[in-house]
Amino acid sequence: MGQAAGAISRWRTPRSAAGAWRVSAPEASSADDVHSKCIIAIARDRDRDGFAALFSHFAPRVKAYLMRTGSAPSLAEELAQETMLSVWRKAELFDPARASAATWVFTIARNLRIDAARRVRDPASLAGEIEPEAPEEPFAAVARRQSQALIREALKQLPAEQREVLALSFFEDRPHSEIATKLKIPLGTVKSRVRLAVSKLRELVEGRT
């Protein structure tokens, strides 16, 4: 049975869903706009030129992402191709009002990575592809296009050292102890940099002070 202790599951101060993303945002990067248009063109016309452009940008990056999170190059290659195939097949589910192209592709690659790991552990548990009942990726209907641009801006504003530990701990999911060894800095410094990066990011994205 499960439980909660005050110390473990904290009581979160409610934030208003609208308020959190209210800050007016700079325009999304134009490269990402181009990628969004490619996905929409695939949904509408099965546009192969658009697909080629998406493939050349995202496939090598998805492969790099998967390798950094510990996949062998051959699996990373296979999942990167599978990610692009999903982009083609699921293009109708892409909603540019909800997510940037890069975020959408990231969530597809991440989900494939999770399923690949789970298949290794328990091949029988997943029922495989099920019919989409609603656009499932990315997760939240509350994510707004402009918040994505805000996140990009916020990341740019982080000091390089905070950005680096955030990339290692979030994007590459490396344990803090491993980051400390890799960067040759004390564990406490890693923890405080991650904490600072997260709170700065939140402040910039949510417009909190």
Binding site: P60, A143, L166, L201
Partner: peptide, 30 residues
């Protein structure tokens, strides 16, 4: 509330994906 939080992190993931140094795909991948 938690969906919002996850959406923020997915946005971070997307931004980082865009900027990662690309790996080389095999020749016939495309």
């Amino acid at each position: 509330l938690c969906r919002e939080e996850v959406a923020m992190w997915e946005g971070v993931g997307g931004a980082m994906l865009d900027e990662i140094a690309p790996a080389e795909m095999t020749q016939d991948a495309f």
